[in-house]
Design a protein around this nucleic acid. Structure first.
Lengths: 229, 229
DNA sequence: TTAAAAATATGACTTTTATCATGTTTACAG
DNA sequence: CTGTAAACATGATAAAAGTCATATTTTTAA
């Protein structure tokens, strides 16, 4: 038996909370729950999506392959993210690729439902609009950081952002574990530079690590680093 | 006598085209036409806007001041841009500053009108949504370029983008003239690096210049530069 | 018109970051 | 378990980009 969207708590985190009972009912009947394994591709840049993926649990990265062979991660998706939302709205091919960074539970929702609701439920359209507007603000800020901050500053910023978005586990470590290469691909640098910077942070007691797990030890100093040089 | 929004051709370029006659009428009655001088501040980052600015003519830059004292230009606004749209929608303080780069004609539209239409006219809400979704796609691509491309590549990209957005004048020069410093602030580099790169482009006959005016002479070679190194 | 200010241009040098090489540790499939 | 691949780490070096200095040209405003 399916879990019913009407009862799903995840939608409180995204635009789907603005859907009405009957809309949710219809979605419930055609949605497909999927388990996605770590490393699996959810969609590739340039694909035409026939639906969106509502993330119930797990983490994924949204990124673009560059001419230089590296990936640039544009966004890390947390619980509640609606993957593919932008391209379904604009009815375009996806601009980014999505890959699972941990095992994930997602619900696949055929795009017709979203498009119907966007055409008929102004509360939903507004909710999506607010969502995208916030993504845009965030993206603008990333542009500024990429352009004007050093690798050191961006590493610090990325650690802060990961902790803010994913929280900490019971031991105080950031509740998402990325490879150094993935962190580098968020920061926009080479993995060696990322590793070196994190090692320096460790030496300065700004952070500590346990394998891939990272704990922010001196929040104040790390945050200060983000601003000044 | 005011120009009436109902007859204004500019709205064909933006979300306001989805407004109905009576909405346009109401806006016409409370909008204010303004002439803004080159260099004038339209709004500052962190301000609370009481309306948006629909650009009839002229060019402005949307940018953010950084801790290192430099500005990062996030977007150059052409005719048809609705400045302040994002922050009025989310009802937040502005995230960016806007400054006129040439004399401009704009219409100031009190925010109540937009908010009313967003709450009642689903076609308008959808139009704004598409608009912002496209801005987001563009911003994501800028992030990737900033993070992964060299200054040379980004300079080439910026020239292409300026020509694509603003077109060329009768002599074939890009129809917007920026200082080298402003170009540098789009590219995300120091003005010296920008000047040097443009000089190199001139030597390689990719572009020619006449004062601040820039003409792309070898489109193919310049575009090739954007991709590979 | 002309003096001052701003913008452009270029050289010299420093700092930051990327790349390449190599060794070590960790994760994981058989 | 254990061998193999992946990830981590660090040094050496090269390349890219930033900064500072200074000269020239262009723009602007009195």
């Amino acid at each position: 038996m399916h879990n019913r969207c009407e009862n799903c708590i995840i939608k409180e985190l995204n635009s789907l909370k603005a859907l009405k009972k009957d809309e949710l009912k219809r979605i419930s009947e055609s949605k497909v729950s999927k388990n996605i394994k770590k490393g699996e591709v959810i969609f590739k840049e340039g694909e035409r999506l026939n639906g969106v993926f509502c993330v119930r649990s797990g983490v994924s990265k949204l990124f673009k392959m560059c001419d230089n062979g590296k990936d640039q991660i544009v966004k890390m998706s947390a619980r509640g993210e609606v993957l593919g939302q932008r391209s379904v709205i604009t009815d375009e091919r996806t601009n980014l690729s999505a890959v699972a960074l941990s095992d994930m539970e997602v619900c696949y929702i055929p795009k017709q439902h979203l498009q119907d609701s966007i055409n008929n439920n102004i509360d939903f359209t507004k909710a999506v609009l607010l969502n995208i507007a916030n993504d845009l603000k965030f993206a603008d800020n990333v542009i500024v950081n990429m352009a004007q901050k050093t690798v050191k500053q961006r590493c610090a910023e990325t650690l802060k952002h990961l902790e803010d978005s994913f929280g900490t586990d019971c031991d105080g470590f950031i509740a998402v574990t990325l490879t150094r290469e993935d962190i580098a691909n968020v920061v926009g640098t080479a993995k060696e530079a990322c590793i070196r910077t994190l090692s320096a942070f460790k030496k300065e007691k700004l952070i500590s690590t346990d394998g891939k797990r990272i704990k922010i030890e001196n929040k104040k100093a790390l945050y200060r680093l983000i601003e000044g040089l």
